[in-house]
Design a protein around this nucleic acid. Sequence first.
DNA 1: GCGACAG
DNA 2: ATCTTGTCGC
Length: 234
Amino acid sequence: MPRVIPELARESLWPADADEARALQDRLAPRVRVEPLDPGGVRLVAGLDVSYGAAELVAAAVVLDAVTLEVVAQATVRAAPSFPYVPGLFAFRELPPLLAALERLTVEPDAYVCDGYGLAHPRRFGLACHLGVLLDRPVLGVAKNAFVSEAAEPGPTRGAAADLVDGGEVVGRCLRVQDGVRPVYVSVGHRADLDSACALVLRLSPRHRICEPIRRADRLSRAELAAPAGGKQT
DNA sequence: GCGACAG
DNA sequence: ATCTTGTCGC
């Protein structure tokens, strides 16, 4: 159901090589908007993730009720990788299949959470920013470790946080979502600010380190990857 | 030059 | 991301 303007997708997802990909990121980065995200406006949240097999991948999107965290809709897409994994150019590898999976959804999410970075990226345009700009909807990036940025060790309890800094600027936040458990790295993708992003991630992580939307998408993509190809594609 | 490097 | 056993703990 979520759609991207065809021209924008065609021009910003298929670079001929790494240099062109970096140029595309530099050209699109100015479109990112950082602004408060109204918690009450987020009823449906989509979690995105991709699992890899020998020569194929499965992209999954799972939509949850932001309050009850119950699954409202989900979709998967099986495809062949169309771009190699290059640190910093992650979006060109995962966005095409993820967008295809999103188109299969039967509901319109109010916000999206994806694996990886938003502004905590070398050119301030990680996967979360790229997806946000293409959809022009709120998107957050949650990674399991830092890339270009550094952060102090946050306090030991849930909710404790420390600035993620790169080149002298705050690009995200190292956030502990469970007592005594390693923190996650949150950065804004689009149409959100750090405070609202962290508040939402905490709400979406009532029990585990990985927030529920991404957790569900991870499980779904793995299950579909293991399932016999050609079967029902949610 | 060398190592590091979201998933 | 993925290749992989048992083990400790809620």
